[in-house]
Amino acid sequence: MESASALDAPVGATVPTVVSERLARKFSRNLKERAIEALLFLAAFVSVFTTAGIVYILVKESLVFFSHVPLWQFLTDTQWTPLFADAHYGISVLLSGTITSSAVALLVAIPLGTTIAIYLSEFASPRAREIAKPVLELLSGVPTIVYGYFALLFVTPLLQKLIPSLPGFNLLSAGIVMGIMIVPYVASISEDAMRAVPMALREGSFAMGATRLQTALKVVVPAAVSGIAAAYILGVSRAVGETMILAVAAGMQPNLTFNPLEPAATITAYIVQVALGDLPHGSVGYQTIFAAGLALLLLTLFFNLVGFWMRRRYREAY
């Protein structure tokens, strides 16, 4: 029809029809593009909005808490008994549990994760790597509640054979299992960092007569050191935020201790405990979980930022 009218009508008459048709098509195309853009923006916005919402709630509710409990008391008190008549709110009690369990986890995850990363990056044949890496990543897919029961019902009895005085709930067993949980993160990020080391550097080392192990330890690891440090920091941040393993295996009683052989509550385990209990909303006891949550958020945010910054630094190095 279009071509027919173009033949019949004088030239001057057809041009506007064609143009307006093109404009109409262009208009509808633009409209579609804009709609898609808006949709994509909305999807991105949801995650940003959620984060902002979380921070807003935490800060708002924490302010309520801090209007009842002065900040210095929160930071310096050595007891955490918000549910007792004689209430004390010393976050250091929960923090000690978090620090101790994370330290145990790192003592497991750092040597193991680094060794695995060195093996995968420098020694494993491509075939071995193809098999080992997915298996390793499978570890990070295990639900943490399963790890928790593994700690409570398998690792703790095992440890009790070595240390008979070990209580059924303890930070050591939870920390060890948490360490195993973090190994894939540490190994995977460290391996990425080591593989990013240019081949030219390895060749330079081999050309000097170095063995594989010497090349790995004296050249590749130092070259990837900021990436490896980032892996450790992100591991710390995972350990600090881990909840289930500790709630199940470490006991939930607040205990100001740095001894991994004792039971203790961490910040996360405490939040679970209160959130599950039947404390009336709005009571100071209930508000504590927001203050504890805020402290946790700040802690993990700090580690994530440091880790992010370090990763970026090593990316820029080459």
């Binding site: 240019p198 030219a200 550097l201 060749e203 330079g204 080392s205 050309a207 004296k218 050249v219 130092p222 070259a223 050191v225």
Partner: peptide, 8 residues
């Protein structure tokens, strides 16, 4: 080598 490759 072609490109200088000092170790870190």
């Amino acid at each position: 080598f072609q490109k200088p490759n000092p170790f870190p």
